[in-house]
Amino acid sequence: MITVLAFYLFATLTVLAGAVTILARNPVHSVLWLIVAFFNAAGLMVLVGAEFIAMLLVIVYVGAVAVLFLFVVMMLDIDFAQLRAGFVRNFPLGLLLAVVLLAEMGIGIGAWSVGGIKLGTPDGSAPTGAAASNIEAVGMLLYSKYLFLFEAAGVLLLVAMVGAIVLTHRQRSGVRGQNIGRQIARRPDEATVNVKPEVGQGVTL
């Protein structure tokens, strides 16, 4: 009973938040509604028993990706007139995308009564024992059957990270960098001088 109520709550909110994400006029509001949608999707994941995926969804998407979205969008100087200017030009492309999505949804609904998806092994049995918890099951698969794919994904991310650093790093000339070690090693007796200048003499530093 409670799970049913929770499902309808999460599902309705996900759909509504998704719709408002598109319909909201203010981009910041859009991002915030998107976050609501992510969060409720995580709730749906918990309901189907995929608690690990749910937590990852919240940590990665809500906690990191959406914050960066919000950062960018908040700092934009939003001109609403300019935003609407491209409507007619982009209309055919948008229509095409909408038709493709509609077709996909049609196929999805058509597959409603086909039955469960056979995941994992060819005979349809679960790849790991049902007794294993979510994280154990995922870990078991990632580090055995999909080890090379997993490591390839890791290398891919590393390359992307290095690439991002290389692309944005620039060496500016004429800038004196900080030497943190020297700053920390500095002590008061070598950094300050106590002098008693004669009146009118001034101090040389």
């Binding site: 690990f52 937590m55 919240v58 940590i59 906690g63 908040m74 979510n134 994280i135």
Partner: peptide, 22 residues
């Protein structure tokens, strides 16, 4: 008493930033 207790804590603490940003 959930299996992913610590991940839950991480997830919730990553939400804390929204109150401040908003």
């Amino acid at each position: 008493d959930i299996n992913v207790g610590l991940l839950y804590v991480l997830a919730i603490s990553s939400l804390g930033v929204y109150g401040v940003i908003i």
